[in-house]
Amino acid sequence: MLEFNNVSKWFNGAQGKVTALKEVSFSVRPGELLAIRGPSGCGKTTLLLTAGGLLRPSDGQISLNGQDPYTLSPEMRSRLRARNIGFVFQQFHLIPYLTVRQNIMTASLAIPQKEASEKAQQLISRFGLEDRADHVPARLSTGERQRTALARALLNEPKVILADEPTGNLDEDNAQTVFGYLSEYVSDGGCVLLVTHDTRAAAHATRSLQMSRGQLVE
């Protein structure tokens, strides 16, 4: 589903060339939750954004559902992302003036669908947000915000979920809940690439990789 082949990424900054990813290769298959663990600044987020078609690698190839997103036009890449990827971030990135329901439905902006409203309602029920459906993010707990973000990621029924520290701001119970939902998604045939420094993730992952200074360590 998602495959990295010797992918490298470096940035040219004021202090010279900074390597964020160095010849990274791995693949994630359907039904797999791959956890990539590592300390802050090791390149995890860069890896995730590169996987999501948002950050062009400096070298190497990426295959997403059999396609290299970076060979596509920006428009086509956006479409590929909308159809195949769901994002979950540590900071949730919910739109502050939209309710839970509306935030979930923002995913339908990229792929308009008639049944978006029904799907959103199903996700609200599934994630236990019925009472909060018409609340804006400012009135939600962090756990509810992350569940909303997760529901938004699932609205378009993506093939891959890219999760960046999804439990970084959550307490134990909420973290377990999120992991539970991700595991559920994987068992339904989806695949998850999870980058985290949370050691608890290993317990839920089907496979774990360690990352250090932009390189993967088995």
Partner: peptide, 16 residues
């Protein structure tokens, strides 16, 4: 800024 970032990430095109 954040809103635009997430919308673009979930596949909303720049022309939208």
């Amino acid at each position: 800024r954040e809103e635009i970032g997430i919308l673009r990430a979930i596949g909303v095109r720049s022309r939208h």
